[in-house]
Every structure is written in structure tokens, then in C-alpha cells.
Amino acid sequence: MKLNVNGESVEVEVSEDTPLLWVLRDHLQLTGTKFGCGVAQCGACTVHLEGAPLRSCVTPVHEVVDKDITTIEGVGRDGLNPVQQAWIDHAVPQCGYCQSGQIMSAIALLRFKPDPTDDDIDAAMSGNICRCGTYPRIRKAIQAAAAQLREADGE
């Protein structure tokens, strides 16, 4: 079957029920998207499906054939995405395992809500677990990225 991942068309031969997560990690060697729970509880597997967040661990690959999928490897195509840069500026990651998913959820949030409140951040990000406890810095980084994006848009 044919998948569109990060702007590239790829052919994979897998059983159609295989979760997208494992197609990405084991068949396409895109290991930036992580396995944390397998039951859509932790968000580490978050990718974008046509710009909206998706938990790839519970998505059979046949659902996303011919649709645009973006992974962490694809969000900073021309240098770093502003969200990634904000993550660096605020030294957000500790162990870092959850951060691909956090960043994907944050990018989606800012697409929908360029000026998010604290409640908006809670609502968008509470599906992503961080065991290291980086939440306060994630919050600050999102607000910084939001400000930077608004400025870039000339607001």
C-alpha cells in the first residue's frame, strides 16, 4: 500500500491492520515517533493526519492510505519548526522520550489556536504524558512559540 509520509510517497507491504506506529518505526525506520502504551493513553505516538493530531498506535494503517501524514521528522523541513526552537530555548526535554508527541500536539494546538490560554493548553496537551514532569516548561515554550508565530504573521 502507498503512504504519504512527510511529503514523500512510500510503498509498504504490511498487513492492513498493522498500527501506523509500527509501520513508521519498523518498516520505514522513522523512529522519532514513540511507543509508550499502545492504547492511546500517553500520546507518545502522536503524528499529524492532514494537519490534525492522530494517535498512531491505535490507527490501522489502511485508514491512512493515500493521506498526508507528518511525523516529527517532517515538521522542521526548512530548519526547525518554531515550536521545536521554543523547546530548545526553554530547555524543555529531560529524558526526551515523550517530546516528539508533545511537540506534535503543540504544533496542532497553535494551528487551531494561535493565542492559547492556559486552559487551552491544558485541553490540548493533557493527552500527552511526561513522566519526567516537564509540563511547566512545555507550557512556557508553547506560549513563547505562539508569540513568535504571531509576530512572524505580523500581528
Partner: peptide, 10 residues
Amino acid sequence: DLLAKVTGTA
């Protein structure tokens, strides 16, 4: 380790 961890390359 920041760059690697925000780009999924770690």
C-alpha cells in the same frame, strides 16, 4: 541533547 530530542533523532 536538546536538538536530538526535539527532532526525534535521539
